[in-house]
């Protein structure tokens, strides 16, 4: 497979990067680690005129660093590699759900290249879309690319390509905010508002903007949490479903505050909002856990976007939710 033709820009400053993006608008595409962009380019899924390689920015600014202070919480530069995140002793200790989720992304080689910014802006995935040019043409394309119909839900005009990133659900359970830099400077946005739950138009990011950092509030530090991922192989594979939980449990075993988020079962990573309400103030009980798990299933709307069936993926959302909650409670007890 060959690569499509494009011009490569390698801006040395954030300002340059923003201005290049502003100049080229929809013709430009950001390249970070490239682990999503480059395979997709080879499949001719997009044809940017200009590829803006932002890796050189890792040298200046704080675009690749991981910083923590009790006052400002955690800040991860968008170009921080996945390896640097899951191997960070700080993140492992204070934000275990994030370390756990990131450690499941692809395999070690991809994690050495992939960045958290790229992971949060990942293209949505579908078995009718992530295929070669020849394959898609032989099918006549799909709604997301070059075609009139969605093969997942042929009747509708909605693209169900699944959000298939692993860090986003973890960060959602940590009330993360992202820092977006554009011509007007930097702004912050709750991560939950970044995702549009539309397979074709996944994130709320202007064409002249880039994601520059992720922030996690200090109050989320030290929470228990874990991540359960459904996949065929224990390395390399994208999630077929994923459940992230973070929880603050007091010394009496009462859940003070909890978040539950799902991935790979909708076009966006989604918080199960009810979980937060229902769990707060409660001790662990099988009935409660079961109720939350049932709610998680209602939030998950997997369709046949991947090799596993929707029925099984929903089933696993339930099992994983229960396990994740039980484990969080248990590990809190142990403290």
């Amino acid at each position: 497979m060959t690569m499509p033709a494009f011009r490569l820009e390698r801006p040395r400053s954030l300002a340059d990067a923003v201005s290049i993006l502003a100049t080229h608008g929809p013709d430009a595409m950001i390249l970070a680690g490239g682990t999503d962009v480059v395979p997709n380019l080879q499949m001719k899924l997009f044809s940017p005129r200009v590829l803006v390689d932002i890796k050189p920015l890792a040298k200046n600014a704080q675009l690749a660093s991981i910083d923590w202070s009790p006052a400002n919480g955690l800040r991860i530069g968008a170009l921080a590699t996945l390896t640097s995140i899951c191997e960070s002793p700080l993140i492992r200790e204070k934000f275990p759900v994030l370390a756990a989720a990131v450690a499941t992304i692809a395999g070690p080689l991809q994690r050495n290249m992939g960045t958290v910014g790229g992971n949060l802006c990942l293209e949505t995935r579908c078995q009718w879309y992530n295929q070669s040019d020849f394959w898609r043409k032989s099918l006549g394309g799909c709604l997301k690319k070059d075609g009139p119909i969605c093969h997942v839900a042929p009747g509708g005009k909605f693209c169900w390509a699944a959000w298939s990133g692993d860090s986003a659900p973890a960060l959602l359970t940590l009330d993360a905010e992202i820092e977006i830099t554009g011509p007007q400077g930097a702004r912050r946005l709750p991560l939950a508002q970044f995702y549009k739950n539309d397979g074709m138009d996944r994130i709320a990011l202007g064409r002249d903007e880039l994601l520059t950092a992720v922030h996690v509030p200090a109050r989320m530090a030290g929470r228990r949490g874990n991540y359960h991922k459904l996949r065929v192989r224990n390395s390399i594979d994208y999630p077929l479903a994923g459940v992230a939980v973070s929880m603050h449990v007091d010394s009496r075993g009462i859940c003070r505050d909890a978040r539950l988020a799902l991935t790979a079962v909708n076009p966006a990573p989604l918080l199960v909002k009810e979980a937060c309400e229902w769990l707060a103030g409660q001790p662990a009980s099988p009935e409660l856990i079961d109720r939350v798990a049932q709610q998680a299933i209602r939030t998950a709307k997997p369709l046949t976007t991947s090799g596993s069936t929707p029925v099984y993926r929903r089933d696993m959302v339930r099992v994983f939710t229960r396990r994740a909650l039980e484990e969080s409670w248990r590990s809190a007890d142990g403290k």
């Binding site: 078995q127 394959w135 032989s138 065929v232 192989r233 224990n234 390399i236 594979d237 090799g307």
Partner: peptide, 27 residues
């Protein structure tokens, strides 16, 4: 346990080493 060529109307759904699941060291 994990390898299978999946067909849909004669179309191979997993013609890649990402989707045709030969085992890694971990399984």
């Amino acid at each position: 346990l994990q390898e299978e060529m999946v067909w849909d109307n004669g179309r191979l759904m997993n013609p890649s080493l990402l989707e045709y699941k030969i085992a890694t060291t971990l399984e």
